[in-house]
Design a protein around this nucleic acid. Sequence first.
DNA 1: GTGAATGTTCATTC
DNA 2: GGAATGAACATTCA
Length: 258
Amino acid sequence: MPELPDVEGFRRVLSDHAVGRKIRRVDVLDPGVLRGVGVGTLQQVLVGRRFGQPWRHGKHLVVPVAGSDSAVLLHFGMTGALHWACDRHRHDRVVFTFSNGELAYRDMRKLHGLRLANGADDVRRVVAGLGPDAAELSRAGLRDQLAGLRRQVKPALVDQAVVAGLGNLLADEILWRAYIHPRRSCADLDTDDFARLHTRMRNVLRQAVSQGRVPPRTTWLTGRRDEKPGSCPRCGTTLNHGRVGGRGTAWCPRCQPE
DNA sequence: GTGAATGTTCATTC
DNA sequence: GGAATGAACATTCA
């Protein structure tokens, strides 16, 4: 689930409820999600302190710890989420308790997790390997990242080192809207292709970010692909399904010619 | 039992 | 060196 819009939603959850509140407790229900930090250290650094304003780059969420140079780094893998003031769930892995409620880091598959950065350099290293954030990317910026790459366009879009924040579903959604076949080479894209790609990307992100998720609407490709095969929301043609860059991919054979 | 699932990383092979 | 592929991580679901 978590792509850029979802992580932006988690950022808002944190920002709306938890920022500035004193952290009363940190309960690690499953140490399996802690990466490179132990339970004791995490509690020592956090309990009694407050979170500062969280920020996001791509799918990474950085949560500064006020009054220290540490920061909690969150990545949600494929099944992670932040929930506020919820009933305990079996996949809650870490729970932060504040005076006004609880914040749970919930993750079924535990593919990623929670790290602790010590100092600004540590934080910088997180972002260092990532491309520009998809939501901030200008048209020229997008072209700069993709133009001339001898790769298929979909694998390039989901490569976090090229553009940060797009995942499997969003990439398919954007390509479908831009009338570009996922297997086309970046090197083949012309000025019009880049223009459409950028416009559609911004549009999809704006709508998805406002909802904090990729909307399940049936006017979106994302809302139809699970019907297997499902039909194109625009022209009604039966969708194609295949593997591109090793990932399950859906596209409309009519709107997105090879 | 099998395969696939919205993510990332590492090894291998062309 | 780049790019594509497959496996690995842990867990659930069809």
